[in-house]
Structures are given as C-alpha cells and as structure tokens.
Simulated assay, not measured.
Amino acid sequence: MFGSRSARLAETPPPRGARIAAYVLLLVLGMATALAGSFAQSLWFPGGLLLALAATVGLFYGGLRLTTTKLGAGAPLIGWFLALMVLMSPRPEGDFILASGIGPYVYLFAGAVGGVICATLPTRTMFGFGAGPGGAGRG
C-alpha cells in the first residue's frame, strides 16, 4: 500500500512540466480541502473530523506519491495552511468559519502533523542529490 523505502526511491518522476502543473493543482486542492474540512469537522463531529483528517492526510500523501518529491506533499500543505489562516480570521460581522473548540484544534494540529510526516517521508530529493542508488534522481 505505502511501499517500501527502496520502492519509493526507485519510482521514476513525471516530467518537469507535469510536476509543476501538479504542484499548482495540489496547492489549490489543499485550499479546497481546508475549506471543506473546516465545515465537515464542525458539522458532523466526531465523524466529520475523522473524515476531514483522512482527506487532508490523503491529499498530502497522494501529492508525495504523484510527484515523487517532498514538495508534492508540501504544496498542498502550504495551500491548506494559507486557507486555514484566512478561515480563522474574524469576519466583519464578527463570525468565524473556524472558531475555537476541541474539534478545530484537533483538525489544525493533526492536519499539520500529518502534513509534516508526509513531507518528511523518504523519497527522491527535488534536485536529484543523493536520490536512490547511484544518485539517479535527476528531474
């Protein structure tokens, strides 16, 4: 399912243009996941929280495997984090989309930890230094 370290290092990366397009798409998907997750975790607590976390971590790991680079997990993490910063700011009416409470705090903390874990899993380096056997990680 997740593959071994040697299997992940042996994956061939997609072409550079496809990776760049994937990074942009993953950034936007990270923002959309944050928006949907912020509503789902509060509407259907605790099932919505688990669903939102599964979608969030799944997006991070999927980006890692899609692009075969750590930036593949980092791009949706950046989009997710930026969207949550906007969602946590108060609106002029005094409302919050992501207010304080145990559910939002767990969503923020567990999502960030999941993103960092996915971004630090062993995979090819972005510039090909020391990636895999013989340093064959150019991309």
Rank of each mutant, 00 (worst) to 15 (best):
G48S: 09
A54C: 06
I97Y: 10
T56K: 08
L53D: 12
Y61I: 10
L84Q: 03
G3V: 12
S42E: 11
A22C: 05
P14V: 13
Y23V: 01
A55H: 02
R5C: 13
L64K: 04
L71G: 10
T68D: 03
G111K: 02
A22L: 06
G132H: 03
A10C: 08
F45E: 10
A110W: 03
S89T: 15
R8T: 08
P13Q: 10
A119R: 08
T56Q: 07
A22Y: 03
G58Y: 00
E11R: 14
I20A: 15
Y105L: 03
T69C: 08
V28N: 00
T123W: 02
L59S: 07
G115Y: 10
A40K: 00
G37W: 07
Y107M: 02
M31Y: 00
S4W: 14
F109W: 02
F81A: 12
R8N: 11
I97G: 06
A112P: 00
S42C: 08
A54K: 06
L35I: 13
Y105I: 00
L27Q: 03
T120N: 14
A112E: 00
P133Q: 11
Y23G: 03
L35Q: 09
G135F: 10
E11C: 05
G130F: 09
A10L: 11
S42N: 05
L25Y: 05
G103V: 09
Q41P: 00
T125M: 06
A10F: 11
A136G: 05
T123S: 10
G62A: 07
R138N: 14
G115L: 09
L51I: 07
A34D: 10
A119D: 04
L35Y: 13
F60D: 04
G111T: 02
I20Y: 10
T33M: 12
Y61W: 07
V86I: 15
F2Y: 12
L49K: 09
G134C: 09
L66E: 05
P13E: 14
A75W: 10
F129C: 01
L71W: 12
G72T: 00
L108R: 03
L87Q: 00
T120F: 08
C118T: 06
A10T: 05
F129A: 15
G72K: 01
S6V: 13
